[in-house]
Nucleic acid binder design. Structure first.
Lengths: 343, 343
DNA sequence: AATTTTGATGAAAACGCTTACAATACTGGT
DNA sequence: ACCAGTATTGTAAGCGTTTTCATCAAAATT
């Protein structure tokens, strides 16, 4: 079927001009006479001609296309980043296309630079540390990729890499979250964190410890656990904390890795007969759409993902080698309340 | 920066062979002596050589890349489709990349076939009818696109187009949903539907009417409304129904367009003092991850989106011109219950 | 009217691969 | 040692654009 695709030659012949002229018309160059332009445009319309980006990219070495790679789409908040990036790109005349994580690193842990082969004008990579993709492989892939196109990183940026990036200041976020909870009277605060790179500022556990210290609260190791960012894992994680402790020692507030995990916590809490926020306060992170519709509505950190996507495109296109911080704000809803008065 | 990107010539020179040989090694052809192969591979490794997909695509007219275009990513269920498609593609040696809806139709309603310019090996298009993209423009875009690459449609397929497709049998789904609710004793069932193409089988309202008829229930026009697929719109839609009717005439069950809308219904119900499912039963559609974590957990239709994504790739690659039906199943949770006994 | 300037067009060489097809280097059988 | 047959390698012609440079006609200047 893709046989009849017309080329610039077909158009040129049919319009009785040279291919150079067709090329000029297609790219909207000025120096073509009105008459010729109209003639050519007519033929283009009638043949539904669409110049090949491949050929264009080859000869001009620009594709006006960016790439974005996201770890998983099962977390709706990556979708937000994509949406933001996509809008910004479009408004600047660029096209953006999303590549799965495997185009960077395949499931066997090899670098699989499908991405590099496309010779894009740049790529945004949203890095999430998981046990599988830490360290070596990731770093090698990124370095190799970078020799092919400009790269902007979002999220957790490995210490040793000096890339333009927009980073999450997770330590600070968690620290302030702890503050927020202590103001509500909580002293037994648990943290369900993730794997968070080697960079202090992107580590929740670092901020957690700081937060506790700020308020002279002891660090209780069974209050800090790590898990993956899914509801199931969240549920298990809280189960583990609660089942391992006498009720008297149960935390009164939990900081979750993200909203998905928070949803899992809701279920675990229910199972253990805890009402939110009366017996247990829960705080999420990301502010995904559903967060507002849980009951009780989830108090969480809005990570402004759309804005983040936009800024990433911006950074990529301006070409400066900067590291910026992502914005965020706490959104208070109903899942955090005053510490329960146990009698 | 993207200056130093090595070409096949660089590799050839450095390895002391011809470019044809390098090409053979890169593509893993058999007929290269072991010695040569190793020599070339070493150079490829050391230079981090990644052949240009552009050049490759041009000369071979295959890219081993598929496209997928989804209307919006704000509905997590599209993410599921992508995930499924992505996995299936990979297992068949293809790469898949996602394009935003604007690469098909731009916001001004013009066809913007960025997609066509990439000369992909095929593309999956997930069609959602909205007031903006109905009819003409969409159809013209699809037709034009199809002359460039094979197309498989998912979702609501315009009547007049004979494309290979996997369609939702919405009419049947809604009809059976009505049955399910009548078995619980409901007689006042509302439908919050969407814009659903011109095809009977993809129209919820058609199935709704059939369902009512099956059970000899009257059609009450204020019970049927249309809305867009967001929580906000859902909330408004139910508000409108409830506010427009005396409580005695309020529906006892509502069928929602999708789970996002259902979440909006929860909020509206709460606002009107209705408890779910005691006063009002709610049924969603899609079975997004969050659905299971609402309280009460949402009874919904699992649209098996991952499987759908896989099947779409399958259909695209097998090249047959078939129309299939998407699978689905009702998942019972807590949001639907027996009809309230009003005294 | 002759000359210069300007504007519109065309010819041809890249761009980095694949892929016939041709050429060469081996192999084993005599 | 010779030849056919086979395995390996190289040559060169595309693929569909952009872009530089040259050409040519028309308009502007003298």
């Amino acid at each position: 079927m893709p046989e009849g695709t017309p080329t610039i030659y077909d158009i040129a012949r049919e319009a009785g001009v040279s291919i150079a002229t067709v090329s000029r018309v297609v790219r909207g160059e000025e120096n073509v006479s009105k008459k010729t332009r109209e003639k050519v445009q007519a033929v283009i319309q009638s043949r539904n001609f669409m110049p090949s980006s491949l050929a264009r990219g080859m000869s001009s070495r620009r594709s006006y296309t960016l790439g974005i790679v996201l770890p998983r789409l099962t977390n709706p908040n990556y979708a937000e980043i994509f949406t933001g990036a996509s809008e910004e790109a479009r408004s600047r005349g660029y096209h953006i296309s999303m590549f799965p994580w495997q185009s960077l690193i395949d499931p066997q842990g090899n670098q699989a630079l499908t991405l590099a082969s496309w010779r894009l004008d740049g790529v945004i990579i949203c890095v999430e540390y998981t046990p599988e993709n830490q360290g070596e492989t990731l770093i090698r892939s990124l370095e190799a990729l970078r020799s092919y196109m400009p790269v902007v990183l979002i999220g957790c940026v490995p210490q040793c890499l000096q890339y333009p990036a927009i980073t999450y200041h997770m330590a600070e976020i968690v620290r302030q979250s702890v503050s927020y909870l202590t103001e509500l009277g909580h002293e037994k605060i648990a943290l369900i964190g993730g794997m968070e790179a080697d960079q202090d500022e992107s580590r929740r556990d670092v901020g957690y410890l700081e937060g506790l210290a700020d308020h002279k609260l002891p660090f209780i190791s069974s209050y800090r656990v790590f898990c993956r960012g899914t509801p199931e894992e969240g549920e298990k994680a809280l189960d583990a904390i609660l089942d391992g402790l006498m009720p008297a020692y149960w935390p009164t507030a939990v900081l979750a890795l993200n909203d998905l995990v928070a949803m899992g916590l809701y279920r675990s809490a229910k199972k253990h007969g805890l009402s939110i926020p009366n017996d247990l306060s829960i705080m999420g992170c990301d502010n995904i759409v559903s967060a507002a519709y849980l009951s009780p509505a989830l108090t969480t950190i809005d990570m402004c993902q759309q804005a983040l996507g936009k800024r990433a495109v911006d950074l990529l296109l301006c070409g400066e080698d900067m590291r910026q911080r992502a914005e965020w704000k706490l959104v208070e809803r109903e899942s955090c309340g005053p510490v329960p008065q146990r009698l």
